[in-house]
């Protein structure tokens, strides 16, 4: 599938979350007796029906902590399951976490009488929240995008990739793991659409009358910490400030007018390629 990332219809453009249905009509009987501790034998419960069953189980049993959209919950500490998983890199790893829980956290094991088949269906559902990047073919050229990133678009002035670049925006070294090409294009065209609180701006007026402005690195009930545009780190007690204000906007410019459609496609292809594992060509 070739996907062209033209502009103005972002919601309709990218439809590449493809789930490969392997189409097993009958499960091998050996699967019914899989050991509780899974090893990496792969997941054969991954038809569209299995994913749907896994989804239903997830909504009922898991969404209380992980959210109905599986995007996690800051309060419960339940992680976002729609991007890169921190504790599992394989189907067997996900299976084992569901089966055994994570000691020392609120992640409890599923009940012992839940059949392995159900757990595998849950694994299939969690996998379906991500996708195989190899199933996505983009119109842009990553190499060209890389040159744009470091050249004309000057993204590297603010963003780091693998230890090189600026500090005035998120580190993008692994951005391809958690963002879809559509997300990436939207961020380039309309950076204010979704700004993580870490990248909001705070303008704080001290009792000395000096106003300092910077990224809102952290704010709590009584204090806040910012980084100004010279990368200086400041920590304030709120009660010692004259006042402060919060701008929930991005400091990044929109590239909707400054780059062509083709250049945007190239940049998206480059950003999408940024991940820990290098994809096979």
């Amino acid at each position: 599938m070739i996907i062209h990332l033209g502009r103005l219809k972002p919601n309709l453009r990218w439809l590449a979350i493809s789930i490969v249905a392997l189409g097993f009509s009958d499960y091998p009987s050996s699967l019914l007796f899989q050991s509780a501790q899974a090893e990496d034998a792969g997941n054969l419960y991954n038809t569209a029906v299995d994913i749907r069953m896994g989804n239903r189980y997830f909504e009922r049993q898991c969404s209380r902590c992980h959210g109905f959209d599986a995007k996690g919950n800051d309060e419960t500490g339940a992680p976002n399951l729609t991007g890169r998983l921190r504790r599992a890199s394989s189907d067997a790893g996900i299976f084992n976490i569901i089966r055994e829980g994570v000691p020392g956290t609120a992640m409890l094991p599923v009940a012992a009488d839940v059949p392995d088949a159900t757990v595998w269906q849950l694994v299939a559902y969690i996998n379906s929240l991500r996708y195989d990047p190899l199933s996505v073919e983009l119109a842009g050229d990553a190499e060209t995008g890389n040159r744009l990133f470091n050249g004309k678009a000057d993204c590297s002035g603010c963003h780091m990739v693998n230890g090189r670049g600026g500090r005035l925006g998120p580190d993008l070294s692994r951005i391809g793991e958690n963002k879809t090409p559509e997300d990436l294009l939207l961020s380039l065209m309309d950076p204010d659409q979704e700004v993580a609180p870490r990248w909001w701006t705070v303008r704080a007026a001290g009792a000395d009358g000096v106003i300092r402005e910077g990224f809102r690195m952290n704010e709590d009930s009584f204090s806040l910490r910012i980084m100004d545009t010279d990368s200086n780190l400041w920590s304030f007690q709120k009660r010692e400030l004259e006042n402060y204000e919060r701008l929930e906007k991005s400091t990044m410019p929109s590239y909707a007018e400054t780059l062509s459609d083709g250049e945007l496609d190239d940049l998206v292809a480059y950003l999408f390629s940024l991940r820990r594992e290098v994809l096979p060509q």
Partner: peptide, 12 residues
């Protein structure tokens, strides 16, 4: 439970 919920904005 018959359903659930999700936040669409960060807690901050």
């Amino acid at each position: 439970t018959g359903g659930g919920g999700r936040y669409t904005s960060p807690m901050d």
